[in-house]
Design a protein around this nucleic acid. Structure first.
Lengths: 191, 191, 191, 191
DNA sequence: AATGAATGAGGATTCATTCAT
DNA sequence: GATGAATGAATCCTCATTCAT
C-alpha cells in the first residue's frame, strides 16, 4: 500500500538496515539485497533512493559519525573544563556508539576509507574534529596536548577493535582503560 | 617443464604475493587471479596448493604473525628486564612489520577474523601471546600489569590504523607515542 | 490540481519528447523515464496514456510519418506535372523532416520495424505510398517507372543514413545528389 | 573436454554467433547469453575472451567489414579499368555480404556507430575506403567522380535497408538497380 | 608440476510496469 | 488527472573453482 512521504522513512530504514548488516557481518561483504531485505523493501528501491551501493554505505557512515558527534556534544555540554577530555572519552564509549552493531559497522569504515575517496574524507573530518576537541580539552593539563590527543585517539580506535573481536572486553572496561591513560597523560604533563 | 621440489617455492611466492596484494588494496577485495598473476603462476595452481581462497589468506595471515613473532623474539633476546616492555613495543613498530604493505595486510585480518573462525583463532593466539608477553614484562613495574598490557596492546592496534589511513603518521612517531604511554603506565604503577 | 482535457496535450508532449529523445540518443536505448522527464510528467502517466513503451514509440513513428506525408502533400500541391518527382525529393529533404532530430528518430524506426510487427506495417505503408507517389510522378518520363522509384527511394534512405552518421553531408548536398540521380533516371528513361 | 588452443576457435565461434544473432534480431537488443548459447559456450567465457559486450560487438563489426573488404578486393582483381566501379558494386551485393544475416547485422552497425566511438571509427574507415575506391574507379568516366561516388555509396546503403526490411527485394534486383544508376552516373559524366 | 579452458553462482544495476492514493 | 512508491525480471559482469591435459 504505497503512501506519500515514504522517502525519508525508507531512507532511514535502509540506513539502519545497512548499519545492522555491517555490524552483523563485520565486513563490507554485504549485498544490497541483504540490506534491502532487512529494511523490508526490494533491492531496486534501495538503488532508487540512494543511487548505488557505495552511496548507501556512505549514508550509513555519515549517520554513524553524526550519531557520534551528537554524543560528544551532549557529553561536552555539561562538562567542567577539567572534565572535558574525560567527557569526550566517555562519549566514545557511550552505549549508543558502542553497541556491538555500531562497533562492527565502524570497523567496516576502515575498509571503506581505503577504497572510497569520499569515505576517507568523512573519516578525516571525524578524525580532525575529534583531535581538535581533544587538544582543546587537554591543553590546560598537558605540556604537549597534540601528542596526547594523538595517543588518546589511537587508543580509542584500538579499543574499538578489541571490542569488536574480543567479547571479553566490555565497554565499561574499555572506558576505564582509556580514562586511566588519560590520567597518565595529564600526570605526565604535570611532571 | 615441470621441476621437482617446486612446492615450497610456489607456496612462498603465493603467500608473499597475497600479502603484497592485500597491502596494495587495503581490503579483502583481492581476487585469486590477482594474487596468482603477481606470483607469476596460474590461479589454478594457487588452488592446487592451498585448496581455496580462504586458505590462501590464512596462510598469509600465519606468515605475517610468524614474522611478527620472530621480530618480538629477536628484540626480547637482547633486552634487560627493565627494557622488555619497550622491546615488545619496538618490535610492534619494527620496519619489517610496519611497512605500508604489512600494515594494510594486517588491517585486512581484522576483517578476516570476523568471518573466518580459524582466522579469529589465529588472531586470538597472537593477541594472547602479546598480552602475556606484555604482562610478564610489565609486572615488575606496574601495579596492575594486566590492565597496562591491555591498554598498550590496544594502543598499538590503534596506531596501526592511523598509520594505514593517515600518511602523516610515521612509524617513528607512532613508536614514540607508544613508548611515552608505556612510561606513563609504569609511572602510574609506581605512584 | 488536475485539469480537464489534458489528454491531448499530454499525448502531444510525450510524442514530441519521444522524437526528441530518439533523435538525441540515435538509438532505441531510450527509457520511458527519460521521455517522461523531458515531457515534464511522470513515467506512470506515459503508461497511462499509451499503455506501454512500444506504443509510445509507435505513436512517435506515426507522428513522424504523418509529418512527412504532410510535407509531401504540401510540396506536391504547387508542382507542375514535370516537377512532381522533384517535389517529392524536396519534401524528403525538407528542413522539417531533415532536422538531426528527425533523422536520428527515423533511423530508430529501422530498428523498430524489425522487432515490432506494427512498426513494420507502418513503415510499409509509408514505403508503399512514397513508391506509388514516385511511380505516378515518374511514369511520364521513365521507361520503367517502378525501377526508377525503387532506386530513388533507396537513395533517399541511404542519404538519410549518411546524414545521420556523417556531419559533413548537409541537407542541401543530399538534396542535390538526389536530384541529380533523378535527372539521370529520367534521361535514361528517354534514351 | 577442454583442449589446448581453443581461444581462436572460441573467438571465431563467438563472432559468428554474434553476427548470426544480430542478423536474427535486427536490433542491438541481443544479450551476451544469447550469443554465448548459440556459440555453445557459457556467457562467462564470452566475457573472458572479449572483455565485454561492446568488444564482442566490435569484433563482429570488424569481421563483417573485413569480409566485405576481401570481397571488394577479390572482385577488383579481375576487373578491367572500365569495369572497376561495377566490380565494387557487385562486391557490395555479393552473396557473402548480402545474406539476410549479414544485412541485418550491418543495420545494427548504424546503431552501434551512434553509441560507440570506436564503432563510428570503424564505420568511417569502411566508408572512406569505399568512397576512395569508387572515386578512383569512376574518375575516367565521370566529370565529378566525388559526387558520383557519394551517390553510389548512399544508394548501396539505402538498398541494404530495403533488403533488410522488404523481403520482396532480392539481391539480384538490388544489384541491377545499383548498376543502372552507375550507368546513369557515367552517362551523365559523358554528356 | 602446471595451465588453459570452462562454468555456475551470485551481485550490482536498470527499467518497464503496476498500484494505491 | 497524475504521481510517488514499489518491484520482478532481466542483463552485464566477476570470480572462485574444477577439470582434462
Amino acid at each position: 500500500m504505497p503512501k506519500l512521504g515514504m522517502e525519508p522513512i525508507r531512507r532511514e530504514a535502509l540506513v539502519r538496515a545497512t548499519i545492522a548488516e555491517l555490524g552483523r557481518a563485520g565486513t563490507l561483504d554485504v549485498t544490497v539485497s541483504q540490506i534491502a531485505r532487512r529494511a523490508g523493501v526490494s533491492s531496486a528501491l534501495a538503488h532508487h533512493y540512494f543511487g548505488g551501493k557505495d552511496q548507501i554505505f556512505l549514508a550509513a557512515m555519515r549517520r554513524i559519525l553524526a550519531d557520534f558527534s551528537a554524543d560528544v556534544r551532549r557529553e561536552l555540554e555539561g562538562a567542567s573544563p577539567s572534565d572535558r577530555a574525560a567527557a569526550i572519552v566517555r562519549a566514545s564509549f557511550s552505549s549508543s556508539s558502542f553497541t556491538p552493531e555500531a562497533v562492527g559497522a565502524w570497523m567496516c569504515f576502515y575498509g571503506m576509507a581505503q577504497k572510497n575517496a569520499e569515505a576517507l574524507h568523512l573519516w578525516q573530518i571525524y578524525h580532525r574534529r575529534l583531535r581538535s576537541n581533544l587538544i582543546h580539552a587537554l591543553r590546560p593539563f598537558c605540556s604537549r596536548p597534540e601528542d596526547a590527543a594523538d595517543t588518546l585517539g589511537a587508543l580509542i580506535d584500538g579499543l574499538y577493535i578489541r571490542a569488536a573481536l574480543d567479547p571479553a572486553l566490555t565497554p565499561g572496561e574499555a572506558l576505564g582503560q582509556a580514562l586511566a591513560v588519560l590520567r597518565g597523560l595529564c600526570a605526565e604533563g604535570r611532571s
